[in-house]
Design a binder for these strands. Sequence first.
DNA 1: CAGGATCCATATCGATACTG
DNA 2: CAGTATCGATATGGATCCTG
Lengths: 129, 129
Amino acid sequence: MSAVPRALAGPCARWPEDSDFVREVLERAGDKWSTLVVATLEDGPLRYTDIHHSIPGISQRMLTLTLRHLRRDGLITRTSYPEVPPRVEYALTPLGSSLLATVLALAAWAVDHHVEIRRNRARFDAAGE
Amino acid sequence: MSAVPRALAGPCARWPEDSDFVREVLERAGDKWSTLVVATLEDGPLRYTDIHHSIPGISQRMLTLTLRHLRRDGLITRTSYPEVPPRVEYALTPLGSSLLATVLALAAWAVDHHVEIRRNRARFDAAGE
DNA sequence: CAGGATCCATATCGATACTG
DNA sequence: CAGTATCGATATGGATCCTG
């Protein structure tokens, strides 16, 4: 937010000038709940409660907030059916699907390397501390 | 952390049983500073101060913490040369490089779609609120 | 059923000052 | 130069209660 010395303009420009926005997107992609919600919707539309039950540990508050953020970004849609009791379904948009594909690549990386990382952490903790 | 009802075991298992760990890795990958540091090291080893100057906005504290975390995971190495004044270089490990490739794919997604997302957000804010 | 509103604990982060 | 230590602001997240 604060003014960045122009002298730094060069070395900083590893990413396009929109780097702030890229960060924003990365933060959303890296957000614990956002990715889980997107992944949960992979197979088709789901209701609020279904999502809630599919993601252990998420609170109502966080689910609601996450859904709103994803909706705001256009990654999911919300459709409410005027019935009693109310029924609301959330579904991935094409944009959301494309993000999912990318995030799954990252998840695959995590699956491929988590054993190695876990070993690294154990070694580091044993040595350093 | 709390015990999850076994009844949820089915619907939850979208990712392998290590889903907690996958989340951990995703959080690190999605972390604002971690990805920037890894990206900064793409072209070769750098000293602490160089990294600091390459990433506008990062505090000493956050840089130090981020470097330690990345080192703990085995994504970067730290080499200190016994000179005066001290010289310390950080470099990507092969593991770090492989993560970078994946993260860059995500960054590319962000670059490709940020205009669309920005539009979505503007529309959402104009309508909803 | 699908949330909104509120309260509170903790985690995160930045600024600052100090050190080998 | 390359950090560590401390403090305070703010963000984040969970629990709980309430409503159309």
